[in-house]
């Protein structure tokens, strides 16, 4: 009850704070929309030129893929390790460490609180994309509901990945360097750049063993009909498995991280 209440209030503060930056949010989302629109136009053109499909994706499925992509991207933004560098180097984490609420909960609730503002901006922009590119995909109600559910769990999963990555700042005070490497890996292994079916088989196999796919392509496949009910259930299974595994890892790393914290900078 205490934790739920703290989550609720922190999320509300996150929402209120985000509402102070409505225009900045719009510009950020525009950035997130431009990236997939470029991919969409390129791959739709190539698919059309190749006789209508590449690696099992029709031109129309590419359109649906990248429009769904926009919601996934807007939703799965988490705390980047750049923030951790500042927290550690300047000792800004000190106040949080003397508060009886784990910083993870505080960060997660705060980011969750942002989402309604971003999604509010996303709706008209996504509607515009649908109008312009007119995907012919018609997902069923369960696919839509499962998609939204998977987007939320995908957010939690990606948030944990970034959070545990950020904890390396306790050792290096430069977690951002590692973040650059992981971002590149994520770009290739999540389906963010292109659907993984366009990648070599070994990349696809590797992607199945890593968490990134379950934060991007996994949810998208559900809504564009590239997977069935069993595949959707398996996707949720992978998401929860990774959340549990990384949750344990986060707890272990956190315990070690704060032991070696030197509280410099303040």
């Amino acid at each position: 009850m205490r934790l739920a209440n703290a989550y609720w209030v922190q999320a509300r503060l996150g929402l209120q704070a985000q509402m102070q930056y409505r225009v900045a949010s719009l510009f950020s989302i525009l950035g997130f929309i431009i990236e997939p629109v470029v991919y969409l136009v390129v791959w739709r053109t190539i698919a059309t030129a190749q006789g209508g499909a590449i690696a099992g994706y029709t031109a129309d499925e590419f359109v649906a893929y990248y429009i769904a992509w926009t919601l996934v991207r807007v939703t799965n933004i988490g705390l980047t390790p750049y923030v951790w560098d500042g927290r550690i180097q300047q000792g800004r984490i000190n106040d949080h460490l003397t508060t009886p609420l784990h910083l993870f909960h505080r960060d997660l609730a705060s980011f969750a609180g942002w989402k309604p503002v971003w999604i509010a901006w996303w709706i008209p922009l996504a509607s515009l994309l649908v109008l312009v590119f007119q995907p012919q995909i018609r997902p069923s109600l369960w696919q839509i509901l499962a998609f939204f559910g998977a987007v939320i769990t995908g957010f939690v999963l990606r948030f944990i990945v970034l959070w545990v990555l950020g904890l390396t700042a306790f050792w290096t005070t430069r977690a951002s360097a590692l973040f650059e490497i992981v971002t590149t890996a994520e770009l290739l292994l999540s389906g963010r750049l292109v659907p993984l079916e366009l990648m070599p088989p070994w990349v696809q196999t590797l992607a199945n063993w890593l968490p990134f796919k379950w934060t991007f392509q996994g949810p998208i496949e559900v809504v564009i009909g590239k997977t069935d009910a069993a595949g959707t259930a398996a996707m949720f299974g992978y998401q929860f498995l990774w959340i549990a595994a990384l949750g344990v890892l986060t707890a272990v790393v956190w315990k070690r991280a704060i032991r070696r914290y030197s509280a410099v900078g303040s």
């Binding site: 205490r2 209440n5 703290a6 209030v9 922190q10 503060l13 209120q16 508060t99 009886p100 609420l101």
Partner: peptide, 9 residues
């Protein structure tokens, strides 16, 4: 607003 968070925590 931040005081509210303190109240909850």
């Amino acid at each position: 607003d931040s005081y509210e968070l303190q109240r909850a925590i």
